[in-house]
Deep mutational scan, measured.
Amino acid sequence: MTEYKLVVVGAGGVGKSALTIQLIQNHFVDEYDPTIEDSYRKQVVIDGETCLLDILDTAGQEEYSAMRDQYMRTGEGFLCVFAINNTKSFEDIHHYREQIKRVKDSEDVPMVLVGNKCDLPSRTVDTKQAQDLARSYGIPFIETSAKTRQGVDDAFYTLVREIRKHKEKMSKDGKKKKKKSKTKCVIM
């Protein structure tokens, strides 16, 4: 069974824990209790493949930012979460993405942009803004509501699919490099 290491990042209060708990335990946590770091595991079937999701729910508070490099190193894919009623959390996505790329030393890291709290009427981040940002990053965008469960499975499952595509691409690139290195030079 394939294991996928997913990391949920975003500013404090955007609903990272609520999304994760909704996926794992099928219930909505409405009281806000700032996370330092929590880890969850769940076995699911995605596109006919049974897999184990190892999900790291991270601290959004700035005082825990020193811990970010460590979990970013171990993560295979990242859910970059903002709240649709919090423009600052949307603007912060850029910083999370840049930090992930720096730590992973790669421009090509599996990510999904997630606009959470889409059940709320007080939207300050337009869907088109988020779609445009995701398009500019070359990553999928999904709106979710941890409260109603809308888009929750889709967000995590899409990230797994992005990781699969990335692994497939990397193995193809690896095979191309191996083929090239088999060419021999004969000096007579």
Rank of each mutant, 00 (worst) to 15 (best):
T2D: 13
T2W: 05
E3S: 04
E3Q: 10
Y4R: 15
K5E: 03
V7K: 01
V7D: 01
V7Q: 03
V8F: 02
V8D: 03
V8L: 02
V9K: 01
V9N: 02
V9F: 13
V9I: 11
G10L: 01
A11L: 11
A11V: 08
A11Q: 06
G12V: 01
G12W: 01
G13E: 02
V14F: 10
V14C: 08
G15L: 00
G15F: 04
G15R: 01
G15T: 02
K16N: 15
K16I: 15
A18R: 01
A18F: 00
A18G: 08
L19V: 08
L19N: 14
L19R: 00
T20Q: 03
T20L: 05
T20A: 02
T20P: 02
T20G: 04
T20H: 00
T20K: 00
I21Y: 15
I21N: 09
Q22D: 15
Q22P: 01
L23Q: 14
I24C: 05
Q25M: 15
Q25T: 14
Q25S: 06
Q25H: 04
Q25R: 06
N26K: 09
H27V: 10
H27C: 11
H27L: 14
H27G: 10
F28Y: 10
F28H: 05
F28T: 01
F28L: 02
V29E: 02
D30V: 04
E31L: 11
E31V: 04
Y32W: 01
Y32V: 03
Y32K: 00
Y32D: 00
D33S: 00
P34I: 15
P34C: 13
P34G: 14
P34R: 14
T35E: 15
I36L: 15
I36H: 00
I36G: 00
E37G: 00
E37V: 03
E37W: 01
D38N: 00
D38A: 00
D38P: 01
D38E: 03
D38R: 00
S39P: 01
Y40H: 02
Y40A: 00
R41L: 00
V44Y: 08
V44N: 10
V44M: 12
V45L: 06
V45W: 04
V45C: 09
I46F: 05
I46Q: 15
I46K: 04
D47I: 00
D47Y: 02
G48H: 06
G48R: 06
G48T: 05
E49N: 09
E49C: 04
C51W: 08
C51D: 06
C51K: 04
L52Q: 06
L53Q: 06
D54E: 10
I55H: 12
I55Q: 10
L56H: 06
L56D: 06
D57T: 00
D57I: 00
D57E: 00
A59R: 01
A59P: 01
A59F: 03
G60P: 14
G60T: 15
Q61R: 00
Q61G: 03
Q61S: 02
Q61T: 05
E62I: 04
E62R: 02
E62A: 09
E62K: 03
E62P: 07
E63K: 02
E63G: 03
E63F: 01
E63Q: 03
Y64S: 07
S65W: 02
A66F: 12
A66T: 13
A66N: 13
M67L: 10
R68K: 05
R68F: 03
R68I: 02
R68V: 02
R68C: 03
D69M: 05
D69G: 05
Y71Q: 15
Y71R: 09
R73Q: 12
R73T: 12
R73V: 09
T74K: 11
T74R: 06
T74C: 07
G75T: 12
G75R: 02
G75P: 02
G77C: 04
G77E: 00
F78N: 01
L79N: 03
L79Y: 12
C80V: 13
V81A: 11
V81L: 15
V81M: 12
F82Q: 09
A83Q: 13
A83I: 03
A83G: 14
I84E: 15
I84N: 15
I84G: 15
N86A: 07
N86W: 00
T87N: 09
K88I: 14
K88M: 12
S89R: 06
S89F: 15
S89Y: 11
D92S: 13
D92H: 01
D92F: 04
I93Q: 01
I93A: 11
H94C: 15
H95G: 10
H95V: 04
H95Y: 08
H95N: 14
Y96K: 01
E98K: 02
E98R: 10
Q99D: 12
I100C: 09
K101Y: 08
K101T: 13
K101G: 12
R102D: 12
R102A: 13
R102V: 08
R102P: 01
S106A: 11
S106L: 10
S106G: 14
S106D: 11
E107D: 09
D108V: 07
D108Y: 05
D108W: 06
V109P: 04
V109T: 11
P110C: 05
P110G: 02
P110K: 02
M111F: 11
M111L: 07
V112T: 01
V112N: 00
V112I: 13
V112Y: 09
L113M: 11
V114W: 07
V114E: 01
G115R: 02
G115L: 08
G115S: 06
N116G: 06
K117N: 14
K117D: 14
C118F: 08
C118A: 10
C118S: 12
C118N: 09
D119H: 14
D119S: 15
D119W: 07
D119G: 13
L120Q: 07
P121L: 10
P121F: 12
P121Q: 11
S122P: 07
R123N: 13
R123D: 13
T124G: 11
D126H: 06
D126R: 05
T127Y: 09
K128A: 05
K128V: 05
K128E: 07
Q129D: 13
Q129S: 09
A130P: 08
A130H: 06
A130K: 06
Q131E: 11
D132P: 09
D132H: 06
D132L: 04
L133A: 04
L133T: 07
A134M: 05
A134Y: 04
R135S: 09
S136G: 10
S136Y: 11
S136M: 13
Y137N: 07
Y137R: 05
Y137L: 13
Y137T: 06
G138I: 01
F141A: 06
I142T: 03
E143G: 13
E143V: 01
T144G: 04
T144Q: 13
T144H: 15
S145G: 14
S145A: 14
S145E: 15
R149V: 06
Q150P: 15
Q150F: 03
G151Y: 08
V152S: 12
D153G: 09
D153N: 08
D153P: 08
D154Q: 08
D154F: 08
A155L: 14
A155E: 06
A155I: 07
F156A: 14
F156T: 13
Y157C: 10
Y157H: 09
T158C: 09
T158W: 12
L159G: 03
V160G: 03
E162M: 07
E162D: 08
E162S: 09
I163F: 08
R164M: 12
K165Q: 05
K165T: 13
K165L: 12
K165N: 10
H166I: 10
H166W: 07
H166C: 07
K167I: 07
K167D: 10
E168M: 14
K169I: 08
M170G: 12
M170K: 11
K172C: 14
K172Y: 11
D173L: 11
D173I: 07
D173F: 13
D173Y: 10
D173N: 14
D173A: 11
K175M: 05
K175I: 13
K177N: 08
K177V: 06
K177E: 10
K177T: 09
K177H: 08
K177Q: 12
K178P: 13
K182T: 07
K182N: 08
T183M: 07
T183R: 09
K184N: 08
K184C: 09
C185F: 13
V186I: 15
V186G: 05
I187N: 11
I187C: 12
I187Y: 10
I187K: 12
I187E: 14
M188L: 07
